[in-house]
């Protein structure tokens, strides 16, 4: 029995499926990372994804143009993020509670509109929506194992990896990224240096809106080619968890999101072997709780270490002065 499982896991198809399942986690997780680092935990990723997924399907169905659908989806997601940012940054609403409100509104609003447009509350199957193209990489696709793993995904999967790199460049190699992290690290200090905390957080929330929208579009225009009610199924929250599991860094977040995807794919494999899939599905969630603990313990150790060094240095200096 275990042989079968191992065989399943070490197959190229399995790796490819992990990548496919991880994509709608990686994209919103990157968005969550950016807003998190700016000091604004975006709990509305889930709602933004849903709205973008819905808009993409509807617009692509009515215009019969996949790219118009994608653009409309991104715009709608950014609009939702802007709505959230406006309530939080300009009207003083609690970010966390307004994020929950956005999620509730997205769940209700998408089902409501779906029913208005199609007369069906379950899915958009009556709408002829479009799918984004699949990319077959010319030479790579013919290499036996590597081809199966690397080629033949939809564009969002490739985008997820490219964007991880871009986000890490943005955060660590550009002045804007440094400002963003400074605002998240210590808003008062950043403000005293002349940074506009509110505007930087607005930018971060809008960016996270773009990334979460891509994740939503991936669900409804690539992973499936229709909209289903509540089709995000908690992925926005898992994405947020991946940010913490990944130690709040781009590459860590990527790996964490893939880990979630791996366990999801694994539970599918085990499902066919009468092993309770619930136990397997539980693993990444338990791992995230553990990661939270490890992260905070490490942070505390670092703080203690810094204090110790400072003290030593201080002692040495006063000693030298005494001589």
């Amino acid at each position: 029995m275990w042989e079968l499982v191992l065989k399943g896991i070490f197959s190229a198809l399995f790796v490819a499926s992990v990548l496919r399942i991880s994509t709608p986690l990686i994209l919103p997780a990157l968005g969550g990372l950016i807003s998190e680092l700016s000091g604004a935990t975006n709990i509305a990723l889930e709602g933004i994804m849903l709205v973008a997924a819905f808009t993409g399907v509807v617009i692509s169905a009515y215009t019969q143009n996949v790219w118009l659908g994608v653009i409309a989806g991104i715009l709608s997601g950014v609009l939702v993020a802007a709505f959230l940012a406006y309530f939080h940054l300009y009207l003083g609403a609690d970010l966390f509670l307004s994020g929950i409100a956005i999620n509730i509104m997205a769940t209700g609003g998408t089902i409501f509109l779906l029913y208005v447009l199609t007369g069906d509350k379950g899915s958009s199957s009556t709408l002829a929506s479009k799918a984004v193209p699949v990319v077959n990489i010319p030479v790579v696709k013919d290499i036996p194992v590597v081809g199966t793993i690397l080629s033949g995904h939809n564009i969002f999967t490739y985008l997820a990896f490219i964007l991880t790199w871009l986000v890490s460049v943005y955060l660590y190699r550009t002045p804007q990224g440094v400002h963003l992290r400074a605002v998240g690290e210590n808003p008062e200090a950043a403000a005293s240096l002349g940074l506009n905390v509110r505007r930087i957080r607005l930018g971060a929330l809008l960016l996270s809106g773009v990334l979460a929208s891509l994740g939503g579009l991936n669900l409804s225009m690539a992973y499936l080619t229709l909209f289903q009610r509540e089709m995000t199924a908690g992925r926005g929250f898992i994405a947020l968890a991946a940010v913490f599991l990944g130690g709040r860094t781009p590459w860590g977040t990527l790996i964490a999101a893939i880990l979630f995807g791996f366990f999801d794919a694994l539970s599918n494999q085990l499902g066919s072997l009468a092993i309770p899939s619930q136990w397997v599905q539980m693993i990444p969630y338990a791992a995230t709780v553990l990661a939270l603990v490890v992260y905070s313990v490490r942070q505390r150790a670092q703080a203690i270490e810094r204090a110790r060094r400072f003290q030593e240095k201080h002692l040495a200096e006063t000693h030298a002065a005494g001589d």
Binding site: G92, A93, D94, A101, I102, I104, M105, G108, F112, Y115
Partner: peptide
């Protein structure tokens, strides 16, 4: 589901201190 939209609006309007 309309009630979900109403519910969300209540949260937003109640929490928006300003």
């Amino acid at each position: 589901e309309m009630v979900l939209v109403i519910q969300a609006l209540i949260i937003l309007l109640v929490t928006a201190e300003q």
